Computed example of a mutant assay.
Amino acid sequence: MRTLYRRLLHMLPRLGVHVLDLGSGTAVLSRRGERARVPVGREADLVTRGSGRYTVARMRGGMWVVARGRGDPSGKWTHVPLGDTGAQLLVDEGGSADERSLQLAAASYLCTHHVAGLLEKYGVNCVFDVGANAGQYAKRLRRLGYSGRIVSFEPTKDTFATLQQAAEADPEWWVYPFGLGREDATATIHADWSTMNSLLPPSDYGKDRYRRFARTRTEEIEIRRLDGVMDQALAGLTEPRPYLKMDTQGYDLEVFAGAGDRIGDFVGMQSEVAVLRLYEGSPQMNEAIAVYEDSGFEITGMYPVTREETTGRVVEFDCVMMRAAAAPG
């Protein structure tokens, strides 16, 4: 004799509800499309939309690989323990990523997580995102849980429009259509270089490395000093604890100089420093770091941004620095 539960499951399809009976008093109900069951070991099931499109392979205790298509995916993947953290790096052995690409992707991931951890540790409540481009940096911080204010600066017209659209639904993400520098002024920026737009001309090395530098479209932009916009950017924060991120393609020291004495307000900072000069007039890494250290910042992390494929030399690092005296007790 059917139980009331079984009668209900039998009746639901007549009402347009799809039923996937998993047994033991468990069922998946859906109105849009049928669901299929893919067993995962003895204790779990993967429920998918449609059928025959996923396969599951057990890698180790408590870890499975889910792949689209048919066949056994276990032979495609290998997993590497990350020290004694309990974390595992899953690598597609049939993939096309080379060692250089893998390192740079890992460095980007580690840098972003390192910064997010520092923002929490130091109680940062306002991130100055200088050289915001389309908002990639701010989006990464949000994905990692940073909920404080972000103030982004992007001077080029088309890119600022994209940035403004990205931030429009986030009331704590403020955007400004100008650049920052040593003096309030107007300037000409190379605006056709995608994420590498710069106020500086390319060096001979930069021209050899990037074809985009052969394009020459320029745009007039507004430049302001950082210390002239800080009060507005920090308005409403009872105890401001700002962090300065700069990615201005060779212009970071000019931005830094524009903070004047108010650079002491920042508990931390981040700058893209060059080992190999891509832009004429940009500082070398040791010169930039010396200026930052003279202002009381100390290195907490160095992450390669780009490498030469032929030699393995690092072209640029993301340098993360904090003011140790500002750390919570």
Rank of each mutant, 00 (worst) to 15 (best):
R323N: 00
F153V: 03
G25A: 09
W77N: 11
K245Q: 05
E43H: 14
R277D: 11
M63G: 08
T306V: 10
L118F: 11
G268Y: 12
Y205K: 00
R31K: 06
P177Y: 05
E99Q: 07
S51F: 15
R53T: 10
S101P: 00
Y205G: 04
R60I: 05
P155R: 06
I223E: 08
S282Q: 15
Y137R: 01
A257Y: 08
A327N: 15
E120M: 12
T195M: 07
G258P: 04
Y109S: 09
T26Q: 05
I150L: 10
T112R: 15
I289F: 10
Q284C: 11
G117Q: 03
W174C: 04
E93A: 12
I223T: 05
R42E: 15
F213T: 15
G86A: 09
E34C: 02
V273T: 14
E172D: 15
S198M: 14
V291G: 03
P13K: 03
S194V: 15
T306N: 14
A290Y: 08
M269Y: 10
G181T: 04
D21R: 01
S74V: 05
F160R: 05
A235K: 10
L278N: 14
G52M: 09
V28D: 02
R142C: 05
A259W: 03
L110W: 13
S203Y: 11
L234Q: 03
A106C: 14
N125P: 00
V275R: 15
R262W: 10
G33M: 08
L15R: 03
A27R: 12
Y137I: 01
A290I: 01
Y279L: 00
N286Q: 06
V305D: 13
L82E: 11
M269D: 03
A185K: 03
T300C: 13
A259H: 05
T238A: 14
Y54C: 15
L144Q: 08
L199V: 01
F128A: 06
Y5L: 12
V130R: 08
Q270E: 14
F256K: 01
L102D: 03
F128N: 03
R313N: 10
M59I: 11
V267E: 01
A44S: 07
V28L: 13
R323C: 00
R70C: 08
R209N: 00
P177M: 15
E99T: 09
P328S: 07
M1A: 11
M246W: 02
L12Y: 06
I263A: 04
L118T: 09
L104I: 11
Y303K: 02
R323F: 00
A44F: 12
V229G: 06
Y303P: 02
Y303C: 04
A290D: 06
V91L: 13
L244V: 05
V56K: 08
T300I: 05
T248C: 13
R31Q: 10
R14S: 00
R35P: 00
E183H: 15
V229F: 14
Y122C: 06
A259N: 01
D170Y: 14
R277G: 09
E172L: 11
H114P: 00
G131I: 00
D192R: 14
Q165G: 07
A87V: 06
P240T: 04
G181V: 06
G228R: 13
Y176Q: 13
